[in-house]
């Protein structure tokens, strides 16, 4: 993809982010942080590519860096979604009697 298309997606996504995040209720700001944490670990995509490649001499080193990054990103993905789920499960409404 060329730089301009990528940049367009990026700028539009910033605007979407701006409006979506302002609509998040302040009571859920902590889950917002933990879930953004989880999704920013989509960086695992890059780690997977590095870990799957090989070939050149430096590819072997790159593969191990990729595997290490997969471990770190996985901690975040599983931990982030799980802790967000745990928090969100606690938010309850008043019981109507």
């Amino acid at each position: 993809m060329d730089l301009i298309s990528i940049l367009s997606i990026f700028v539009l996504a910033c605007f979407i982010g701006y409006y979506v995040v302002w609509s998040v209720t302040p009571a859920l700001h902590t889950p917002l942080m933990s879930v953004t944490n989880a999704i920013s670990s989509v960086i695992i995509v890059g780690a997977l590519i590095a870990a799957m490649a090989g070939g050149i001499a430096d590819g072997e080193a790159a593969k191990w860096l990729g595997l290490a990054a997969i471990v770190l990103a996985s901690v975040n993905i599983f931990g982030g979604f799980a802790v967000t789920h745990r928090m969100l499960a606690m938010y309850k409404k008043k019981e109507r009697k």
Partner: peptide
């Protein structure tokens, strides 16, 4: 916990960038 998780994202980004630097062909 959140601060700790942030540090992992940061480190993962460093590692991925380093891997891309070492093996740009794969990317």
């Amino acid at each position: 916990l959140v601060a700790g998780f942030h540090s992992l994202v940061g480190m993962a980004a460093v590692l991925v960038a380093a891997a891309a630097y070492l093996n740009p062909g794969a990317f």
